[in-house]
Write a protein that binds this DNA or RNA. Structure first.
Length: 474
RNA sequence: GGGGCUGUAGCUCAGCAGGAUAGAGCAACGGUUUCCUAAACCGUAGGUCGUGGGUUCGACUCCCGCCAGUCCCGCCA
């Protein structure tokens, strides 16, 4: 059997901007992927972007109305305009019945492969992709785009197969599967709609086609042994329904696993959904830039206080790593199930369970390494002494790493690694505080340098697994 | 009405497969710098783990009821 794990994460929508909700999916998905890669799995990171569906009808119709039929000018539109563009289209769709009618026709055209419609669709996707890629590059996220449109050729056979297996029921004009153990408001069994009454498909259809494809053997499949979906917990019901139907249809082979990894909302310090003062959704790009700006401000203040001089490059790089690391760590260190309060002040704080604290600990260790004159790979570096209480505690903490990784592989909770890291840093900082290193006699010094080295390696590896870059100095 | 998730110190949260006096951080108060980056370390104070039952030698942890908050529930994703 294959050892391929598919992690489905990030998944923004075309013509919409990425926001903090996508950030959670992106960061958690990336970290889970990294941990599975470390454990020797073949990991396929998939970006299930919303690049198909009814919204494209209105977008393309709007596009044709505004830019005539040659569609050349759209190449100059920027994403923030595209978001405006989306809003305007939506407004017209909601208010103009004639526009709505043309939009619906446009969806059919697109889905049947009309050349002009496809061209317009591609233009829209390319615009969005540029913007998404910039964020992924900034965050150092590797992900493969395979949007909803990819599964378009397989949608019809989903319906056919469900029909064949006599699972599909027609109700109020729509084709659906009734779910066990779930009721609607009237107390009747809840349907999962697979085909709308107008004949169109929806996200349940796409998700089912995706499950089939991902478990199938090549050429028309990925032969995955496990699929992991990282989305907000608002979609829990949807996935429970989709998984149930996939099981009924026997599309999930024996010994394969499928998991929804839900996460809570990102809230402001007021406990409500994170918004700008004007009540608008905060753009992910702005949020990341703000974190880096604040990190830079802190750094500059410290350099001034300590009368230090650093190059422009050092300042830019250090603030970027601290700022982005702080955002990632704040998110990952929470139990993903619960909502969490987003606070720049807390995540960038130099104390407590934050990225700057962890990065600083590593910097301290590397400082020792720079000032010592031993060669690390010499034969002398075998000896470890653990007479002092803080040495013993550090050794015990270092040995726990494997156990933590195994538990995350099982339960998909990256916050446990954060917890471990924080404890490791606390333990190290006590050791650092309580025992001298460089001025000790040879054997003791070697032993303690060894412990420092092991701690640094563990810290680096752990931070890497969280997708956080490290620094030599800060 | 049905279902999901949450409810642990003033605040933000850990507590994984049940095991000893329930742990951190922040905030508050006090202390430590001839020494490797003090962005550190040490100490004090602070909790009937929402509530009522049950299972168990033993429950924050498992099961059931209730209360509160939040999210989802037919053609958006």
């Amino acid at each position: 059997m294959s050892n391929k794990v598919i992690v489905d994460f990030s998944s923004p929508n075309i013509a919409k901007e990425m926001h903090v909700g996508h950030l959670r999916s992106t960061i958690i998905g990336d970290s889970i992927s990294r941990i599975f890669e470390l454990r020797g799995y073949e990991v396929l990171r998939l970006n299930h972007v919303g690049d198909w569906g009814t919204q494209f009808g209105m977008l393309i119709t709007q596009l044709k109305d505004l830019y005539s039929n040659d569609l050349e000018e759209i190449g100059n539109i920027k994403i923030s305009d595209l978001v405006e563009f989306y809003k305007e289209s939506k407004k017209r769709f909601d208010n103009e019945s004639e526009f709505q009618k043309r939009s619906r026709e446009e969806v059919v055209k697109l889905q049947s492969g009309d050349i002009k419609s496809i061209k317009a669709w591609k233009l829209l996707c390319d615009q969005s992709r540029k913007e998404f890629d910039e964020i992924y590059k900034n965050l150092k996220i590797k992900i493969e785009e395979r949007g909803e449109s990819f599964y378009n050729p397989f949608l019809k056979s989903v319906i056919d197969d469900l029909n064949l297996k006599k699972i599909l029921v027609e109700d109020q004009g729509a084709k659906c599967v009734f779910l066990d153990g779930m009721n609607n408001k009237e107390g009747k069994p809840l349907p999962l709609i697979i085909q709308k009454k107008d004949g169109g498909f929806n996200y349940a259809t796409t998700d089912l086609a995706a499950i089939r494809y991902r478990f199938n053997k090549p050429p028309n499949g990925d032969d995955a042994s496990r699929i992991i979906y990282v989305t907000d917990h608002g979609q829990a019901n949807h996935f429970a329904g989709v998984f149930q139907v996939a099981k009924k249809a026997k599309w999930i082979p024996e010994n394969r696993q499928i998991d929804h990894v839900p996460f809570g909302l990102v809230q402001g310090i007021d406990g409500k959904k994170l918004k700008t003062r004007e009540g608008e959704t905060i753009r992910l790009k702005d949020l990341l830039n703000e974190a880096v700006r604040r990190a830079k401000e802190d750094l500059l203040k410290r350099l001034k206080d300590e009368d230090r001089y650093e190059t422009k490059e050092f300042i830019a790089n250090t603030s970027r790593i601290i700022g982005l690391g702080a955002v990632k760590y704040a998110d990952l260190s929470q139990n993903r199930i619960t909502n969490y309060q987003f606070s720049f002040d807390k995540m960038l704080s130099l104390n407590g369970n934050t990225a700057p604290y962890l990065l600083y600990t590593l910097v301290r260790i590397l400082g020792i390494k720079r000032k010592n004159d031993f060669v690390y790979d010499s034969k002398d570096f075998q000896y470890v002494n653990y007479e002092h209480k803080s040495e013993w505690k550090l050794i015990r903490k270092l040995l726990k790493f494997d156990e933590v990784i195994i538990s995350i592989e099982k339960d998909l909770m990256p916050n446990r690694l954060c917890n471990y890291l924080f404890e490791l840093c606390q333990t190290f900082n006590r050791f650092y505080d309580q025992v001298p290193i460089l001025k000790e006699e040879k054997n003791i010094k070697i032993s303690r340098l060894n412990l420092c080295d092991l701690t640094a390696k563990t810290l680096k590896l752990s931070l890497e697994l969280l997708g956080i870059e490290t620094l030599e100095r800060m």
